[in-house]
Every structure is written in C-alpha cells, then in structure tokens.
Design a protein around this nucleic acid. Structure first.
Lengths: 355, 355
DNA sequence: TTGAAAGCGCTAACAA
DNA sequence: TTGTTAGCGCTTTCAA
C-alpha cells in the first residue's frame, strides 16, 4: 500500500512532485533517517535493510534532490569560477584544468565570465555569495583590493589564480612572471635586440603590472634603455594588439626591432599589423607573446611565447580548495602560495636583430 | 535587545552562522514574511516598514541565502550547460552567448565540459538532475537517443543546440547544415574543383551526420563523384586533421584538389599537413572549414570556412528556456525549432583548381 | 542498528 | 498591510 501511494504520486497530484526520501522510506518500511544513511553510504545499516531500501529506490526511481541536502548540510558541492574572458583561448585551458579536477571530486562548476569588466566581476562575487558555493576560484581579477575586500564572503574559501591579494583567502596559484619575462628578454637580447618595446594588457591586472615591472627590470639588468614611448597599453585582444602595434610602428620615434606582448592575442595582432605594413617578421621585427595558447604554434610564423601552465593553474587551484574543504582541514594561518614556472617557447616569430 | 542578539551572533557562537532572515525580522520588529516581501520587492509593504527592514538588512549585512529559497521555491536560477570541448574555440563562443543572455536574466551557469566523452556527458546529466537546475542546454550531444531518454529528467526543460532529438524537450536551436555545405561545395565547384574530399568529425555527432549527408547530396547534385576513399573520419582537433590529411594526401588514390572539413581545427590540421608535405594551399589544394573560430581569419592563408552563428546559438537557447520558465508559459505542444543560417566566409585557403 | 524529531533558511497560503 | 504557520527535501543528533 505504501508503495502504491508513492508510485502513484505523479498521476494523482496535478503538480507532479518528484519522489522524495519519504516515499522511499514508506515503501521500504523504514525511517527517512535510514534511507539517508543508505544514500550516503553510512556503514551502520544492516545489509538486509540496505537492500530493501535500495530496492525501493530503484523501484521508485528515486533521485535525491540536492536542494534539501544543500540546506541541511550547508554545502553545495559547487565551485564558483570567475574568469575574465572565455573567448580568450587562455581561459578555456584554465577552465579545463578546473573542471577536470573538480569533476574528479564530484564537484560542479558555476562559471562566471566577466568579459574583462570589473562590474560584472563584482556582480559575480555577489551572486556567488548568495549561492553558498563551497569555494570560489578567481582567475584574473580586475577588481581593486578595496572592492575585493567588501565583496569576498568571509566564510567562503577563496583561491586566486595569478593574483596575490591582501584579502583573506586560502591561497594563490600563480606563475612566476619574473622568470618568464626575463627569459623572453634574454632570448631577444641574445639575438642582438636593443630596442625592445612592451605592449601591455589591462592595467588593473596584477599579471600585467608584474610583467611590466619585470620587463623594466630585465632591460635595466642588460643595459637596454626603455623610453616611455616604447611601452604602450592595449586591450588584450587581437584588435588591441593591432592598434598598439600601429602606434609603435608608425610612431616618429625609432622603431623597435622587437616587441614583447602581454599575451598571445596581442602578439597576433602585432603580427597582422606588421604584415599589413610589409614589415617582415622576424626579419625586421621580432615578436614574443605570453601564454602559448593552443594555436600559437600553428600561426605563420609560429609564435615565440612565454608558456603559462594553464591547465595546471586550474587544477592546482581546485586542489587547494578541496584540501581546505576536508573535515580536518586546518585553516592554515598563512595563505598558501603555489608558484608555477613558465617556459619560453622559442619559435619562428623571433630572429636576429636587423643590422 | 533583539538587535544586539542578532548582531552578536558571530562572536557569540563559535560556529559563526550567517545572518538569517529571522535575525533581520527580529531586528526590524516585523515577521519573516515581511522581510521576505521586502527582499523580493513585493509591492504590498508599507514604505515605512520597508525602510525599517532595509535598515536592518544593511545594519546586519544580511545576504539572503539562496539555499532556503531554492528549496522553498524549487527553482535555482541556474542553467546547466553541457558542451563537448571547451578547448575547441567554437564552444567558448557559444558559452559567451549563453552566459550573456543568462546573466541578463540574472541566472547562473553550471558548466559541464564533457571532453567529447559520452560517459562524462551522461554523468553531467545525472548531476544536473539532482541539482534541480531550472533548465539544461546541451550543445553537441554525443549521446545516443536511448541514453538521452533515460537520463533526461522529464520535469527539467531541455534545449538542444545543433541536435534534433526525439526526447521530450522544449526545443532546438540549430544551424541549417545543408545550406552551409551546399555553399561550400558550390564555391569549390565554381573554382573548378571536381575531386573534393570530406574529413568528418565525431560519428555520434548529429552535425557530423548532417554535414556528411549534405556533402554527398551537394556533390551528387553537381555530378561530382564521391568515392568512399575520399571520405575519412577524424577526431575534431588539429591533430586529428593532420592525421586525416595524411591519409588523404599520401593515399594511392588520386589526390583531391579540395577538402571540406568538419570543423576549423581539422582544417588547420590539414593546412599544416599540406605545408609539411610542400603542397601549396590554395595553389594545389583548397581547404574549407566549418565554424569560423576567432582565429580562422588570422591564419596563413586565412581560412575559408562556413561560419556558424555561435554566440547567437547560445543566446537563442537561453531565450527559449527563459520563455518557458515564465509563469504563464504554455508547454507548447510541439518543441520549438529555431533554425539559424550559416555564412560562407570565402578567404584565401581556397582558389582555382590546379589544371 | 534503527527511529523520532528538530532543524537548515526561506516562501507562500491563509488569516487577521 | 502584516503575521502565523506550514512546509520545501534532506541530515543529524539523541534515544531506544
């Protein structure tokens, strides 16, 4: 009888409600507590009881709703991932890393693409607060420390990718930008370049700030002059790169023989601008990008670039989060800092400086 | 007094629980129902009361938790998005379309990247069932009808992108593959090509099936012979394209003068293979892709390709979903079918057939 | 090994 | 216009 009642729920009610744990409990002649134990593999249930419950679950096609569980446990099995621009091939790689690691822990991903807009980033953080995600990963924050501080939920574990924040967080996974930029400058310098320009990305980006500083440092270390005119900003897109390149190449000042770009998209824009102007790459202009997006090696010429371990960034961020979510996890006094190393991929967009 | 009690929750309790609607109610000397009304902008609240409540909310820094609301309303404000491969530049564009439309409706995105694996797709569908998303968008399903039928939750609105399913769904947004393929074949034919090969993608993909059928049809319509040897399958990646191209170009059979590829990544692989073999593109081999991924026009040679309206696919899918979620929405008897039109982007990877 | 019962934070009749 | 009161579906003490 109990079974029938449960089974006929759908046809009886005109707002067909899903099968609940109560239906299963009734059908198996046990309490909801026991059903819950079975669902969650609590080992205390007698084998015979377990089987009865499982049979009922099967028969009723019961699928536990996470809504109830979420409320009861105040955990959602969900990670919020905030990224700056999904159409920039750098981010899909990070997302892949995050998603693979997350799914190996049976966690789901709430994705927010801010389109490089700090307002949308703020909005995402607000939403994530309400949604009670178990943790948040922010890749490429464009928010000021102030706003970050007000927006971050104190009780939500936060991991940054490529940003070292002063906000309370459980840690950061980042790439040593110094190493990468230094390798790039060394490479160009070894090829004889002395007039090297830098095209930067979003000013709010900490990565941009670090790369720029590293660039100045590396040049200084080699006695390479860096006049203000050889540093320009760009939006981190192909178009942005094109525009910036035109400034640099058409300018009155002496034209650089090499350009280091904030990212590969900008570098691609530079290549295109050079092509349009009939400037040979790498014959008259060498170009180095950052990231090593999947298509970088396929371009003509294949792009020399400072490779970022994109998937690993994502995967490590999840691991950091997950470790913290474990019951025994100590709220480590000082936030973790995982630092990964970039690799210079020397390809054909760089060559000896013209004489 | 009530205020103090509420305010001191955090310091008093050693498991600091968030501020709840009850705290606010107490602080504002109203019932929780009224607080709920204020939160949800129900217009029946007296101005004076509203202000008192808002003040309390402000003072206590109350942020409503969606967990309680989700359970009470059985809505989550969340869309599940299942895609085949985030590292294929086609999908980020779709995701961008979905995410922009979704965020305009204040909905969040639960993303599942199946990595072209039907098992992971099944897993995603299972998870989405438990999570009570308000709707699911599946882009590029690799699942058989059978499995789709068992996995799809009857009570969750489902929208397919690029697949016409027999499963109960509210609709499909897809691209007219016939039109695209026909345009591509016409283009090649006009250039004098008579030996055209096709490199296909995942066999489970309905898009692949439709493109292949359309290819055969278009060729037949123009009296172009399509021997079995000129149709090969590939994994939808650059490497897959390279491998397939080698088969086609090194084969004993007469080499094709043009290749139509399932997607741009494969087309890029073909270009690379041709380059390695010293086969001039488009001089001796013309290549047409599908999608028009952002970098297609930047390659050397710029890729001729059948552009899919990627962002629009995503945006329209959300609109379909959202319309259905509105209170008055009629469960339209027959699923909607929105059909978008592709555009041939004729660029420099195609040229006159060699004589 | 199991069950009773009290929540988790919010919404929504229904009454007042 | 506001409050009372049941839930929503699940987990989790505590007692049996």
């Amino acid at each position: 009888m109990a079974e029938e009642a449960a089974q006929s729920v759908e046809d009886a009610d005109d707002t067909p409600r899903g099968v609940t744990i109560d239906d299963v409990a009734a059908a198996a002649h046990v309490s909801t507590a026991t059903v819950s134990r079975v669902i969650n593999n609590r080992l205390v249930v007698a084998e015979e009881t377990r089987e009865r419950v499982l049979a009922a679950i099967e028969r009723l096609r019961f699928r536990p709703s996470s809504l109830g569980r979420n409320l009861a446990t105040r955990r959602t099995g969900t990670i919020g991932l905030v990224i700056a621009d999904i159409t920039n091939p750098f981010y899909p790689e990070v997302v892949r890393g995050v998603e693979q690691a997350a799914s190996s822990y049976d966690m789901s991903l709430l994705l927010y693409d801010t389109a490089e807009d700090s307002e949308r980033e703020a909005q995402a953080l607000r939403l994530l607060g309400e949604r009670h995600v178990d943790g948040v990963i922010i890749c490429a924050s464009r928010l000021s420390e102030d706003r970050l501080t007000t927006l971050a939920r104190v009780d939500t574990p936060l991991v940054f990718i490529n940003r070292r924040p002063t906000v309370p967080s459980i840690g950061t996974v980042d790439v040593d930008q110094e190493v990468g930029v230094r390798a790039a400058v060394a490479h160009l310098s070894a090829l004889g370049h002395r007039r090297i320009a830098y095209i930067g990305g979003p000013e709010q980006s900490q990565v941009q700030q670090r790369r720029l500083a590293a660039f100045k440092g590396a040049c200084a270390g080699r006695g390479i002059a860096v006049p203000a005119s050889s540093i320009v900003a760009a939006s981190p897109t192909i178009l942005g790169g094109k525009d910036a390149a035109r400034q640099l190449l058409h300018g009155d000042t002496t034209r650089p023989t090499a350009i280091l770009a904030y990212n590969d998209l900008i570098a691609i824009g530079v290549i295109m601008a050079a092509r349009e102007d009939g400037i040979a790459v790498p014959g008259r202009l060498s170009i180095v990008g950052h990231d090593d997006i999947p298509l970088a090696g396929v371009l003509q010429p294949p792009l020399t670039t400072v490779r970022q371990p994109m998937r690993e960034l994502g995967a490590r961020a999840v691991e950091l989060l997950y470790a913290r979510l474990q019951p025994g996890a100590a709220p480590s006094p000082t936030p973790a800092l995982i630092r990964l190393t970039p690799t210079l991929m020397a390809r054909a967009s760089t060559g000896p400086a013209p004489t």
